[in-house]
Amino acid sequence: MINGKASKKVLTYSHSQACVYYVSSGNTCGDIITYVLIDGKWIFSGWKTSWSKTGSADDFVWPYFR
Rank of each mutant, 00 (worst) to 15 (best):
N3K: 14
K41F: 04
S7H: 00
P63M: 02
K9F: 00
V20M: 08
S16E: 14
P63S: 00
A18E: 10
S52R: 03
Y35P: 09
I2W: 12
Q17D: 09
G26M: 02
G40C: 04
V20S: 05
T54D: 14
V36F: 08
F44W: 08
Y13L: 07
F44D: 03
T54N: 10
W47Q: 15
V23W: 06
G26D: 02
G30W: 04
S7D: 14
V23T: 15
L11S: 00
V20L: 08
W47M: 00
L11F: 07
G55F: 02
T28N: 11
L37T: 03
Y21G: 05
K53H: 02
V36E: 06
D39S: 14
K53W: 03
K8C: 08
T49R: 12
K9D: 08
F60C: 07
S14D: 13
S52T: 03
G4L: 07
G46E: 01
K9V: 00
I33G: 03
W62I: 09
N3A: 13
I33E: 09
C19S: 13
D31A: 00
L37W: 01
D58A: 14
S56G: 05
F60A: 01
D58P: 13
G46H: 04
V10W: 03
L37S: 04
K5G: 07
I43T: 13
W47N: 15
P63L: 01
S56M: 02
I33C: 06
L11R: 06
S24N: 04
W62C: 13
V61G: 02
I43V: 15
A18W: 06
T54Y: 07
S45T: 06
I32R: 13
T54R: 08
S14Q: 02
V20G: 03
D39W: 02
L37H: 06
Q17A: 13
D59N: 11
M1K: 12
G40M: 06
S52D: 09
Q17M: 08
A18T: 06
D31R: 12
S56Q: 01
S14P: 00
F65I: 13
N27V: 10
I38E: 12
V61N: 10
T12E: 11
Y35I: 05
V10R: 07
M1S: 15
H15D: 12
D58N: 09
S7M: 12
S52F: 02
D39Y: 00
I2C: 14
T12M: 06
D31E: 13
N27F: 08
Y22G: 06
I32V: 14
L11M: 00
Q17I: 15
I2G: 10
K9E: 10
L37E: 03
I32A: 05
G4K: 07
R66D: 13
S7K: 08
R66H: 13
I33D: 08
C29S: 14
L11V: 14
V10A: 05
G46F: 05
I43Y: 03
W62Q: 11
S45R: 08
A6I: 07
S50R: 02
I38W: 09
I32E: 10
S52K: 02
W47I: 15
T28W: 08
K8E: 15
R66F: 15
G4M: 08
